[in-house]
Amino acid sequence: MDSLVVLVLCLSCLLLLSLWRQSSGRGKLPPGPTPLPVIGNILQIGIKDISKSLTNLSKVYGPVFTLYFGLKPIVVLHGYEAVKEALIDLGEEFSGRGIFPLAERANRGFGIVFSNGKKWKEIRRFSLMTLRNFGMGKRSIEDRVQEEARCLVEELRKTKASPCDPTFILGCAPCNVICSIIFHKRFDYKDQQFLNLMEKLNENIKILSSPWIQICNNFSPIIDYFPGTHNKLLKNVAFMKSYILEKVKEHQESMDMNNPQDFIDCFLMKMEKEKHNQPSEFTIESLENTAVDLFGAGTETTSTTLRYALLLLLKHPEVTAKVQEEIERVIGRNRSPCMQDRSHMPYTDAVVHEVQRYIDLLPTSLPHAVTCDIKFRNYLIPKGTTILISLTSVLHDNKEFPNPEMFDPHHFLDEGGNFKKSKYFMPFSAGKRICVGEALAGMELFLFLTSILQNFNLKSLVDPKNLDTTPVVNGFASVPPFYQLCFIPV
Rank of each mutant, 00 (worst) to 15 (best):
L4V: 13
V5T: 12
L9F: 12
C10S: 13
L11Q: 08
C13F: 13
L19S: 13
Q22A: 13
Q22N: 12
S24L: 12
K28L: 12
G46R: 11
I47R: 14
I47D: 10
K52S: 12
Y61F: 07
Y61H: 13
G62A: 02
G62R: 01
P63R: 05
L67P: 01
F69S: 06
V75K: 00
V76T: 04
V76R: 01
L77W: 03
H78F: 09
H78L: 07
H78Q: 11
K84N: 07
E85N: 06
A86T: 10
L90I: 12
F94A: 07
P101V: 08
A103Q: 15
G109R: 06
G109E: 05
F110Q: 12
I112L: 15
W120D: 07
K121N: 11
K121M: 09
R125F: 02
F126N: 06
F126T: 07
F126R: 03
S127K: 03
L131T: 07
R132I: 04
R132V: 05
G137M: 10
K138A: 14
S140Y: 14
S140R: 06
D143L: 11
D143Q: 15
R144N: 06
R144V: 14
E147M: 07
R150Y: 07
C151G: 05
E154T: 09
E155Y: 14
K160C: 10
K160L: 06
A161W: 02
C164W: 03
D165A: 00
P166R: 01
P166D: 00
F168S: 07
C175G: 04
V177C: 04
V177F: 00
I182K: 00
I182Q: 00
F183E: 02
R186T: 03
Y189F: 00
K190E: 09
K190M: 08
K190R: 12
K190F: 06
Q192D: 10
Q192F: 05
Q192H: 11
Q193F: 09
F194I: 05
L201H: 05
L201T: 08
N202R: 12
L208F: 14
S209K: 15
S209G: 09
Q214L: 11
N217R: 15
N218L: 15
K232H: 06
L233R: 02
L233Y: 05
K235S: 10
V237K: 03
V237Y: 07
A238I: 07
K241V: 02
K241R: 09
K247P: 02
N259T: 09
P260N: 08
I264H: 01
C266N: 12
M269I: 15
M271Y: 06
E272V: 08
H276S: 12
S280R: 08
S280M: 09
I284A: 06
I284G: 04
S286G: 12
N289S: 13
D293L: 09
T299S: 07
E300I: 15
E300T: 12
S303D: 01
T305W: 05
L306R: 00
R307I: 02
L314G: 03
P317E: 09
E328N: 15
E328C: 14
V330T: 12
I331C: 11
N334M: 12
R335H: 08
S336V: 13
R342H: 08
R342P: 03
D349G: 08
D349F: 12
V352Y: 09
E354T: 00
I359D: 02
D360F: 03
D360R: 07
D360N: 15
L362F: 07
T364H: 12
S365C: 15
L366G: 02
P367K: 06
T371K: 11
D373R: 03
K375F: 06
K375W: 10
N378G: 14
N378W: 02
I381P: 00
I381R: 00
I387A: 07
S390G: 07
S393V: 01
V394G: 05
E400T: 09
F401G: 01
F401D: 02
P402A: 15
M406Q: 14
D408T: 06
H410A: 12
F412Q: 02
L413Y: 05
G416T: 13
K421P: 14
K432F: 05
I434K: 14
V436E: 08
A441T: 05
G442S: 14
L445C: 08
L445G: 05
F446P: 01
F448V: 01
F448M: 04
T450G: 06
T450I: 10
T450M: 05
L453R: 01
N455L: 03
L458H: 00
S460H: 02
V462F: 05
P464D: 05
L467F: 03
T469R: 02
A477V: 12
F482Y: 14
L485D: 00
I488C: 12
I488W: 04
V490C: 11
